Amino acid sequence: MLMFDFDIERILLTLPGILLALSFHEFAHALASDRLGDPTPRAQGRLTLNPLPHIDFIGFMLLIFAGFGWARPVSVDSRYYKNPRRDKVIVSAAGPAMNLFLAAVFAVFLKILVVYGEKTSMSVTLFGTVASMFLYTININLVLFLFNLLPIPPLDGFHILAEIIPPRRYKIIYILQQYSTIILIIIVITPIVSFIIRPPIRFIFSALMRLLNMPMFI
C-alpha cells in the first residue's frame, strides 16, 4: 500500500541500497543486450554503473519516500538479436538476476561484518549502522528481484512471459496489456503485492542466513 515515510534515518540507511539496486539492475539489462549484439544501450550511455543515467527523478523520489518507484528503462533493439525470443528473455531476466546476486553478495558482506565485529573492538553504534545498511540492501534487492518477476506490464516478468508463452495463449498477454493500468493501481493502493512477495523474500533471506551460518536478523 502506498504510504509516505519521512523517517530521515531510514532514508539515509536505505539510500545506498536503492542506488545500487537500481543501477545494477538497469546495467544488467544494458550489458546483456550489448553482449547479444545490440549497440543501443551503449550508444545511449546506459552501459555504466553510474546511477545518474539510470535514475528517473520522480520514480526515485517515490521509491525513497513511498516504497514504490521506478528507474529509467533501458532501450533495446531486438532486431540485432540472433535468436530474438531467447535473447529477449535473457535481457529481461538479467535485471532481476542481478538483484538476486547483489542480495547474496551483501549477505556475504554481512557475514564478514559479523566476524570482523566479533574479533575487533568495533563500536556497537558503528556495527549497528553498517549492519542495518547491509540488511536494507539485501531486502531492497530481494524486493526488486521478486517484484520485477511479476507478469504485469511493464515489469520484466511480463516480457519474459510474453516470449515463453505458446502463441495459442497470447490472449493472456493481450488481457494483461489491456488491464495493466488497473492492475498497477491496485498494486500501489493495496497491500496485495506484499502478501505475494513477502513469503518468498523471507524464504530466500532465511536460506542465505542458513547458508552462511548467520543469526536471523529479521
Rank of each mutant, 00 (worst) to 15 (best):
1 M>E: 09
3 M>I: 08
3 M>N: 14
4 F>S: 08
7 D>H: 13
7 D>E: 07
9 E>T: 12
10 R>N: 12
12 L>W: 13
15 L>P: 05
22 L>H: 00
25 H>G: 09
26 E>V: 05
27 F>H: 01
27 F>D: 00
27 F>R: 01
28 A>P: 01
31 L>Y: 09
31 L>W: 03
34 D>V: 03
34 D>Q: 04
36 L>E: 08
36 L>A: 04
39 P>W: 08
41 P>H: 02
42 R>Q: 14
42 R>H: 07
43 A>Q: 13
43 A>V: 10
45 G>Q: 08
45 G>N: 10
45 G>E: 02
48 T>C: 00
50 N>F: 02
55 I>F: 05
57 F>M: 14
57 F>C: 06
59 G>L: 12
60 F>C: 06
60 F>Y: 03
61 M>F: 14
62 L>I: 07
63 L>V: 01
64 I>K: 02
64 I>P: 05
64 I>V: 14
68 F>L: 15
70 W>Q: 03
71 A>G: 04
71 A>N: 00
74 V>L: 00
74 V>M: 02
77 D>F: 02
85 R>N: 12
86 R>P: 06
87 D>C: 05
87 D>I: 06
89 V>W: 01
89 V>T: 12
92 S>M: 13
93 A>Y: 01
94 A>I: 01
95 G>N: 07
96 P>V: 01
98 M>P: 03
99 N>M: 07
100 L>I: 04
102 L>I: 15
102 L>Q: 01
104 A>G: 11
104 A>H: 03
106 F>W: 13
106 F>N: 11
106 F>Y: 11
106 F>D: 01
108 V>F: 04
111 K>W: 11
112 I>D: 00
112 I>G: 10
112 I>K: 09
112 I>Y: 06
114 V>H: 10
115 V>M: 06
119 K>W: 08
121 S>F: 15
123 S>T: 15
127 F>L: 12
127 F>Q: 10
131 A>S: 15
131 A>G: 04
132 S>I: 08
135 L>E: 09
139 N>D: 08
139 N>W: 05
140 I>H: 00
140 I>K: 02
141 N>W: 07
143 V>L: 02
145 F>Q: 06
146 L>Y: 13
147 F>I: 06
150 L>R: 10
154 P>Q: 11
158 F>Y: 15
160 I>E: 05
163 E>H: 11
163 E>A: 14
165 I>S: 14
165 I>E: 08
168 R>C: 05
170 Y>L: 10
173 I>V: 15
174 Y>D: 13
174 Y>P: 00
175 I>T: 15
178 Q>I: 11
180 S>W: 05
182 I>D: 05
184 L>N: 04
187 I>R: 02
188 V>W: 05
194 S>W: 09
195 F>I: 02
200 P>Q: 07
201 I>T: 15
202 R>Y: 14
202 R>K: 13
208 L>I: 11
211 L>S: 07
214 M>C: 08
216 M>L: 13
217 F>I: 14
217 F>Y: 03
218 I>L: 13
